[in-house]
Design a binder for these strands. Structure first.
Length: 347
DNA sequence: CCGCAGCGAGATACGTGAAT
DNA sequence: ATTCACGTATCTCGCTGCGG
């Protein structure tokens, strides 16, 4: 049996030999350099086509010192919001000639620090980061040690020179809570992520200010801030419902939080909008199946992804870091009501 | 243990011959 | 004399593997 040698991928050298021209001419002809005659360009292109030549991206990266790759570090890949953001960012980056590498931190600062470092070592040209924490030193150290453009999603850190896409959580939540208060709710719970990150701080600020503006005292024991995880939300919803004076409305600050709260309510046969007021943060297609329909504080996730990619591209082009703000909108539906609302409406 | 060649693409300095 | 379109030679990147 005669073993055929593995056919090697054609290189620039092969194209040059095939076309009978110099290596540098192949390089110029294929990379759009102006000093190339139409005849030479055609000759090189024909040779490349005949050989099925494709540039070696690894070698290109080696030579250019750039991989045309952007790392996207996601806190939780199972969150549909991030799917939308990543999709939009990838589209924008792809049009600009970049590929995106996606990693999932699973809510762990350890994994996140590892992922960020791995992407750095892979020589990505930039990082888009939805960080687990704003204070995790190991991640911050890696970010500080790299010179590539960094775009943070909904995070603020003075210690890192980065661009950021932030969402105006404050106004959306404030509008939602104001309406709950107007409907007669006095015991409003909020289940959301840890206070160490900006979205939670802003949501809390909106909640506090809405209470202050309405002259209604805020019940601290109804604030359940610690994790965006579904089981955290579920556990605390059970706990809230068991209180001597349970909440009349629950605000779920995050998609997974909403799933956790709604699942627990469903298990107890408690209907949002009829037995208890409910507002979700960030929309989820399945929420539309609820009856009465679920109120939400929404934001344009595609815009967030586009902004993130654009901020990276601008920094690559030499622009200084800057911040883009995406607005949130309270979409009032029937689930904001509940028994308190009905009672208040009757008086 | 150290130095060095080699991998592939591409940038660049510099040379050449022809056209303008 | 200058410009164009090409060629040659050399260097670079980060890392591996070899020989001394």
């Amino acid at each position: 049996m005669t073993s055929q040698p593995m056919p090697r991928q054609p290189t620039m050298q092969d194209v040059a030999a095939q076309a009978g021209v110099a290596l540098s001419s192949v390089s110029r002809a294929l990379s759009g350099h102006p000093d190339v005659s139409p005849a030479m360009r055609k000759r090189v292109e024909d040779a490349a086509a005949a050989l099925g030549y494709e540039p070696d991206l690894l070698a290109q990266s080696l030579r250019r010192g750039s991989t045309r790759t952007v790392g996207f570090v996601v806190r939780d890949i199972s969150n549909p919001l991030f799917a939308d953001i990543a999709k939009a960012a990838e589209q924008t980056l792809r049009h600009a000639g970049y590929s995106m590498l996606l990693t999932n931190s699973d809510g762990s600062t350890d994994i996140e620090a590892e992922n960020v470092n791995l992407l750095r070592r892979r020589r990505v040209d930039g990082l888009i980061l939805s960080s687990v924490s704003e204070t995790e030193q190991r991640t911050l150290e890696v970010l500080r040690s790299t010179r590539i453009p960094i775009v943070l999603l909904d995070r603020e850190t003075q210690s890192v020179a980065a661009s950021a896409v932030i969402s105006d959580h404050y106004h959306g939540i404030r509008a939602a809570v104001s309406e709950l208060l107007t409907l007669g709710h006095r015991d409003i719970a909020m289940v959301s992520g840890p206070r160490e990150i900006r979205p939670t701080r802003e949501r809390l600020r909106g909640l506090v200010d809405a209470h202050r503006a309405a002259g209604v005292p805020l019940r601290d024991d109804l604030l359940r801030l610690g994790s965006f995880a579904e089981d955290f939300a579920g556990r605390h919803t059970k706990d809230l419902l068991a209180l001597a004076r349970p909440p009349t409305a629950i605000l779920a600050g995050g998609i997974q939080s909403a799933v956790g709260v709604l699942t627990t309510l469903a298990e107890r046969g408690i209907r949002p909008g009829e037995d208890i007021g409910f507002v979700g943060v960030d929309d989820l297609p399945l929420l539309r199946l609820f009856n009465p329909p679920i109120s939400v504080v929404t934001r344009d996730s595609s815009r967030i992804g586009q902004f993130a990619a654009q901020l990276f591209l601008d920094m690559v082009a030499g622009a200084p870091p800057r911040v883009e703000v995406v607005s949130t909108e309270y979409v009032a539906r029937a689930s904001s009501g509940g028994p308190v609302g009905a009672a208040a409406a009757r008086t």
